[in-house]
């Protein structure tokens, strides 16, 4: 009986939709109609490369993210410096994070160095106990100051970039696009993956429209841009 009810609701809602729109839709007609939508907005950026990167930096900073530029050889060193400055002790990293991004000669935790914990299934409570997380990113969008994370090697599960209070994200310059449509085009192929757009640290303006950095997600955000 329960099943009947469920089936009936589905049939009834679809019947109402079809009665309202004048019959059952034809997939081919929908396809043609969709292709006919006027998309006269900017699809591709027009800025030169240097300016795109500068724009990304500007937009990230505008939303309280810190940005550091390094060459690919300098990532490990930069990570060591940033983490020392932030004073974090335990960092979680996803499976598949490039080893070259980790500090070359870091002190063992017993000697006061940063401990890197690989996420091999940490519980939410365990994640709550680490100081920060370090990941890569699929791409970044200059115009909006956004980087995009997906459930893939090097970026990890969504919870890891959410529960710890600090996020250090490494973005490669070649993964920076200028506009949102360029980003969606790149993401299309893997559209089924869990995907998170991050633009600055978590924030709220619910109290008198005052922007407050950091509510539930990471309150502190650094971005390393590999150029």
């Amino acid at each position: 009986m329960e099943t009947d009810m469920v089936t009936n609701s589905r049939a009834e809602v679809l019947r109402r939709v079809r009665a309202a729109t004048g019959g059952t839709s034809d997939g081919a007609a929908a396809w043609i109609g969709w292709n006919g939508i006027a998309r006269e907005y900017r699809r591709k950026g027009t800025r030169e490369r240097k300016k795109v990167l500068a724009l990304l930096e500007d937009r990230l900073r505008d939303y309280d993210g810190r940005v550091v530029r390094v060459t690919s050889e300098g990532v490990g060193q930069s990570v060591a410096e940033i983490l020392a400055e932030r004073g974090v002790r335990r960092m979680v990293v996803p499976v598949g994070l490039p080893v070259g991004w980790l500090p070359v000669s870091w002190m063992p935790p017993s000697a006061g160095g940063v401990e890197f914990v690989v996420d091999e299934g940490l519980s939410s409570h365990e994640l709550d106990g680490v100081d920060g997380v370090m990941t890569g990113a699929t791409l970044a969008i200059a115009e909006t100051g956004t980087f995009v994370l997906q459930s893939v090697a090097g970026q990890g599960r969504r919870a890891t970039t959410l529960v710890p209070d600090y996020h250090l994200c490494v973005v490669k310059a070649e993964d920076v696009v200028e506009t949102v449509p360029e980003a969606m085009e790149r993401l299309q192929e893997m559209a089924g993956l869990a995907t998170t757009f991050v633009s600055g640290p978590s924030a709220t303006a619910d109290i008198e429209m005052t922007r407050i950095k950091g509510v539930h997600g990471p309150r502190f955000l650094d971005v390393i841009l590999i150029v």
Binding site: G121, T144, G145, S151, A194, T195
Partner: peptide, 28 residues
């Protein structure tokens, strides 16, 4: 909505992650 170029978080997910819960690596 909020006068931001992009709000801090947009989440897109599709169904459930196929990874097993047992190894703890299921996302979501």
């Amino acid at each position: 909505a909020t006068g931001e170029r992009m709000n801090p978080y947009n989440s897109i997910w599709t169904g459930v992650d196929a990874a097993s819960a047992d190894d703890g690596l299921r996302d979501g």
